[in-house]
Amino acid sequence: MTSKKTLVIGASENPERYSNRAIRSLRSHNHEVVALAKREGKVEDVKIATDFPADKVHTVSMYVGPQTQPEYYSQILEMKPQRVIFNPGTENEAFSALLEENDIEAVEACTLVMLSIGNY
């Protein structure tokens, strides 16, 4: 399996949060992870940054609601990931349409489920 560098937006140090679980699962599946949140922190070996990364990533996994997403639109579009995964509760029709217009796949799915069934 090829490693797919993933940006997790809405990362949390709280092990009960799905973003935290996703980071740990991505790492256990040998994917490189870049994490972004309003507060710095760390999940295992992954540093949570507060500034949008300059790194090129394959996938963006959203863990922030549609009301918070607009602040990330231009940076995600400039980054040109291959896909953006809208985890449950983060679905955003307007942003999905904008992504598709820019040849970026918009996926409404759960990162954790995708990893567990092998279709990440």
Rank of each mutant, 00 (worst) to 15 (best):
Q67K: 12
I85V: 13
E91R: 01
G89I: 12
R83W: 03
E105Q: 14
P88E: 06
E13M: 10
P70G: 05
A22H: 02
S74M: 08
L36E: 09
E93W: 01
S74Q: 14
L98W: 01
L77D: 09
V64S: 03
D103E: 15
E93A: 10
D55C: 04
E44I: 06
I85F: 00
V33L: 06
S28E: 15
R17D: 03
V107T: 09
Y18K: 09
R17W: 06
S74I: 07
A94R: 12
P53V: 13
N14G: 04
I85R: 05
S12I: 07
K38D: 14
N20P: 08
P88V: 09
G89A: 05
R27L: 13
V46Y: 04
V84M: 03
E71W: 00
F95V: 12
E93D: 15
P53M: 03
I9F: 01
A37S: 15
T6G: 00
R17Q: 05
N30Q: 14
N87M: 01
A106N: 09
E91N: 03
I104K: 03
Y72F: 12
D45E: 15
T68D: 12
T50M: 06
S12T: 11
L77Q: 07
E101A: 14
T90R: 00
L36S: 06
P53W: 00
Q69L: 10
R21I: 14
G65P: 04
G10N: 07
A35G: 08
V33F: 06
L36N: 04
K80L: 02
K80R: 13
A54N: 12
E16D: 15
T50R: 07
M62D: 10
A37M: 00
E91F: 05
P81D: 11
V33N: 10
S25N: 14
E91A: 02
D51T: 15
R27G: 07
E78I: 05
E13D: 09
Q75T: 15
K42V: 05
L26Q: 01
R17A: 07
R39C: 10
N14H: 01
K38P: 05
P81A: 11
S96D: 11
L26P: 10
A94V: 15
Y73F: 11
K80A: 13
R24L: 15
V34P: 00
F52G: 02
S96V: 01
A22S: 13
M62A: 10
K56R: 13
S61E: 08
K42W: 02
T59A: 08
V8T: 10
I104F: 02
P15H: 06
V57M: 08
A97I: 10
L26H: 07
P66S: 09
E13K: 11
P81H: 04
E100L: 07
I23S: 00
Q69K: 10
L26V: 10
S96N: 07
V60G: 11
A54F: 03
P88S: 05
E101Y: 02
S12M: 10
V60A: 03
R27I: 12
E13S: 11
E44K: 06
S12A: 04
R17V: 09
K56Q: 13
P81M: 02
D55R: 07
T6Q: 02
M79N: 14
E93C: 02
K38I: 14
Q82T: 15
R21S: 10
V84C: 05
